[in-house]
Computed example of a mutant assay.
Amino acid sequence: MTATIDPARATEAPPPRRRRRFRTARMLLSERRTRVVLVLLVVLVLAAVLGPLLTPYGENQQDLMNRLQTPGGGHLLGTDSLGRDILTLLFAGTRLSLLAGLLAVGTAVVLGVPAGLLAGYRGGAFGAISNTVSDTLLSLPPLILALAIVGAYGGGVVPAMLAVGVTLAPRFYRVTRGVAASVSKDSFVEAARSIGCTTPRILGRHVFANAVAPILVQVTFSIGLAIIAEASLSFLGLGAQPPAVSLGTMARDAFTHIRELAFPIFPPCIVIAVIVFLFSSLGDGLRDAIVSGGRRS
């Protein structure tokens, strides 16, 4: 006797998945480490946004008589080689680096997620070609590929982050393709097809909804990678250009004058390390919550 699928009953499958996502969110927020990480990230973002209100100095205000000054004397973290207040630059650099990381990850999501959804759901020639392109990009060192793209189209934060986004796109493609290939075989997707739902509706309503959590995990890890890439490119002079300030340009300026004063190189490098650690910790917490299904062990 052949079993039949009742579309009305089959399409009721997503609510339990939604309840599981809510349970996962509660599990994530119930962890003390994750709550601390989220609070620190909020404080970091607020400091970057409200930085100009927290310091009496302008971003490009110079005090040439007190250049390369150690902490103290009205400058909590000292001054750089141009006499600018390092704390003020730290606020501005953190803001630009965070925005650059979001731009790179946003580019990666736009390029990788739709292609992964369609490749996992449809397969065929498009899936084969997409897999080949993804594997080719993954086989190349990301920073070297970004350097090649930036070298071809010129420096600057936007071109540099678009290039980094291209190098990160295969990560999102592979994650999304795996989820789409798995979900496309579920009964509620079969039921949606049987009642005439269009492919865009199925992809958006059913397939993408189940891929959101893994994509968010990838986003948290990728933001840290993008910020490191931005700092590296800016350190080499291919990212942020004067008078713009990023953590990478601060590190480059400090490294150039390290023989005169070593202290200025520490603040930007420490902030980069802290940002990457916080986003990585958030990604670990989110991944653990998803793997456990929101249930405590």
Rank of each mutant, 00 (worst) to 15 (best):
T55C: 09
G237V: 13
L203H: 03
L117F: 07
S182D: 12
L247V: 11
D284N: 05
L138P: 09
S234T: 09
V166W: 00
L53A: 08
A169Q: 00
F255E: 03
F172E: 02
I227Y: 13
G112K: 04
S280E: 03
E230W: 13
N66T: 09
S292Q: 13
S280D: 06
P71K: 09
R174L: 15
L216H: 04
T2W: 10
S139P: 01
A152C: 06
Y173W: 13
R32K: 15
V150D: 00
I265A: 04
A47H: 00
V166F: 04
S30C: 06
F91G: 10
L40S: 00
T107I: 14
A244G: 00
L40V: 02
G196V: 05
S281L: 14
T167V: 11
L64K: 06
L68M: 10
L225H: 13
I129S: 07
S97Q: 09
A240V: 11
G72A: 12
V276R: 01
R20N: 14
L87Q: 07
T55H: 04
L278C: 08
P214S: 04
A160S: 12
G248Y: 05
F235M: 09
G58L: 11
S292N: 14
L54Q: 07
P268M: 08
R18C: 02
T136G: 04
L138C: 12
R205G: 15
F91W: 13
Y57D: 07
T198A: 15
N131M: 10
C269H: 00
T107G: 12
L278S: 13
A148D: 09
L168P: 01
R95W: 14
S184T: 12
L145W: 15
D288K: 01
L50N: 08
I144P: 00
R67P: 02
D85N: 13
P114N: 02
I215S: 09
P141T: 11
P243S: 13
G93P: 13
V109T: 00
T4V: 14
V49K: 12
G239R: 11
A191H: 10
L137N: 12
A146G: 12
G285M: 06
G248F: 04
D6H: 01
I144C: 05
F91S: 11
H206L: 15
I5G: 04
R33Y: 01
I272H: 04
T136E: 07
V245W: 15
